[in-house]
Amino acid sequence: MIEARGLTKRYGDKLAVDGLTFAVRPGVVTGFLGPNGAGKSTTMRMIMGLDAPSAGDVTVNGRHYHGLPWPLHEVGALLEAKAIHPGRSARAHLLMLAEANRIPRRRVEEVLELVGLTAVAGRRAGKFSLGMGQRLGIAAALLGDPEVLLFDEPVNGLDPDGIRWVRNLLKGLAHEGRTVFVSSHLMSEMALTADEVVIIGRGRLIAQHPIGDLLDRSAQRFVRVRSPQMELLVAALDGAGATVTLEEDGSASVRGLDAPTIGDLASDARVALHELSPQSASLEEAYMELTEDSIEYHGAHPAVAVPAGGTR
């Protein structure tokens, strides 16, 4: 469990993170989304106790990071790729971390095996590709078999196989009951892995939802209808309070009513329907819409920056 309350980071007169309040639950993969520069990495560094918050606070399993008796046994993090001395081997890097938290030496071999670096574990890490560096970072995160895991853009630099491997790993870790918090600037990536998303823009919380709810909240959601008796249908829908837009191709887009309701209305009005198809925005579009708003209404309170959907 990770809990942030009013978490704020100020650099000079720039607010990198602005009053973030959110909770990351165990047992699910929580995506941490936002455009580049939204404050994701800064937030993660504050969770890890690397950067001190200017205001507010954040706890891991109810404690501040500095108060954890055995940090690596409780929290594992991949914060940046290749954050390792180029002259040190992967094995030595993991060993020095293991020793700092009294993790048995055999665990180093276990995680090397797990991420597929056993064969190159004795080589200088400076010769590693970005993907190998990323795998080493993941190995370091898993070293203490922690309950809480943070990954900052974990698929960067990985090939398609590696990306699939990371997705399965994240899901597996969550399935074991761990808290998994993964940042990304790509909604498409999160759509495949995350169960829940925390979305930020310009350091502010825009939304925290189960990923499915994100679509429901999108203004892009509507139902497309076609009918040979369009005028009758539009009248019936208008009467029920929907917003109807006639499209050039002869269809109509209906917002504010769901498909079953529209079907029932048509039936009651004895209008034949030739098409009745719910349309949803892609997650990507829903996400773009949300983050655009954060930039457009930067004077607004984060809570009202969430659009109220397509209804009037």
Binding site: L50, V75, A77, I84, H85, P86, L97, N101
Partner: peptide
């Protein structure tokens, strides 16, 4: 090299 972050995550 960025090792400092790993170091201080292990030993805050």
């Amino acid at each position: 090299t960025g090792t400092a972050r790993a170091t201080f995550a292990a030993a805050p």
